[in-house]
């Protein structure tokens, strides 16, 4: 029975690919043109419920394109612009690396513009509300527009130039911030969930990692969260504060070498080799597998030797 609904849209897809589609083509359901790398343009006046043209070679879209629910254009790396006043429930332009700006009058609930590395700014006038906004990896983006007032979720991860949020923005669920330039949350967002590469963390871990200490980290039962806390705190400081157990010591040309271990509840132990560079004298803490028993074994593993007996360096520098 599914055939009855998909046949007309399959026929429409073939017609569009042949380049003979008439203007004003209407497709009742989903039009699937994903992965059609030869597809360079869509017919004028095309209307459909859902359109997937991901990975296609589109450079632009017809000005009068009308898609009701979902418009997928992920990975359309040649796409430069979108039609003005584009209105659709969901717009996915992830990894459209040639897009520099979004159209004036854009009206969407859900916008995924992640990986649009050339995107520099938002339109002066647009309606992006209620759903989610994802600009993860939009490295050229310096600000979000003030008209953003209501979002379900917001992902500004890996947007190092984004240092502030719009003043009236409310987010009902969570904000992803790993790798963003954000240093604090505005007053109205004090209760929003904060994510660090998908892991829910608290405000201290997010914005005041200097206030973290090893005791707090070790008291955290969730292993994912604990890993983020150690990352935010800094590995060296954590190992120093956590009273690591010394599994082994010896000497190498850099001086004293130590194999340190901190047991982790519900996760593998943290074991690392503490060494000094013989040339520069700088200290390094290198994480090694938890099965390491001696400094030599750990150094061998770092050099790529699973069997420490085979690791006989002539000279370490």
């Amino acid at each position: 029975m599914a055939k009855a609904t998909s046949d007309p849209s399959l026929a429409a897809a073939d017609l569009i690919l042949s380049g003979k589609a008439p203007a004003g083509l209407h497709v009742d359901g989903k039009l699937n043109l994903a992965g059609k790398s030869k597809l360079q343009q869509l017919p004028a006046g095309l209307t459909c419920y859902e359109l997937n043209a991901s990975q296609a070679s589109l450079e632009s879209l017809p000005a009068d394109l009308s898609v009701e629910c979902v418009l997928e254009l992920e990975g359309c790396s040649k796409l430069q612009s979108l039609p003005a006043n584009l209105k659709v429930g969901t717009l996915n332009i992830a990894n459209c690396t040639n897009i520099t700006e979004l159209p004036e009058g854009l009206d969407v609930w859900f916008l995924n513009a992640s990986g649009c590395t050339k995107l520099t700014h938002f339109p002066r006038r647009a309606n992006i509300a209620r759903g989610s906004l994802n600009v993860n990896g939009c490295r050229s983006l310096v600000a979000l527009p003030d008209y953003l007032t209501e979002l379900g979720t917001l992902d500004i991860g890996n947007c190092p130039q984004l240092t502030a949020l719009p003043p009236r923005l409310n987010i009902s669920s969570w904000i992803e911030i790993a790798g963003s330039g954000l240093t604090e949350l505005p007053a109205q967002l004090q209760h929003v969930g904060i994510r660090w590469r998908g892991v829910l963390i608290d405000q201290i871990t997010a914005f005041s990692p200097e206030k973290l200490n090893a005791k707090k980290v070790l008291a955290e039962r969730n292993a994912e969260r604990r890993r983020v806390m150690i990352e935010r705190m800094g590995f060296e400081r954590f190992m120093h504060e956590a009273d690591a157990r010394r599994l082994d010591t010896d000497r190498d040309p850099g001086g004293l070498r130590e194999l340190l271990q901190v047991p982790m509840k519900g996760d593998e132990d943290i074991v690392c080799l503490s060494v000094n560079c013989p040339s520069t004298g700088r200290h390094y803490l290198l994480r090694v597998p938890p099965t390491m028993k001696s400094c030599h074994q750990a150094a061998a593993w770092i050099a790529g030797f699973d069997d420490p007996k085979l690791y006989k360096p002539i000279k370490e520098t």
């Binding site: 609930w109 509300a129 209620r130 759903g131 989610s132 209501e150 379900g152 979720t153 009902s172 669920s173 969570w174």
Partner: peptide
């Protein structure tokens, strides 16, 4: 995900 969006 629904909860995040349905409230508004």
């Amino acid at each position: 995900d629904i909860a995040a969006v349905i409230v508004t």
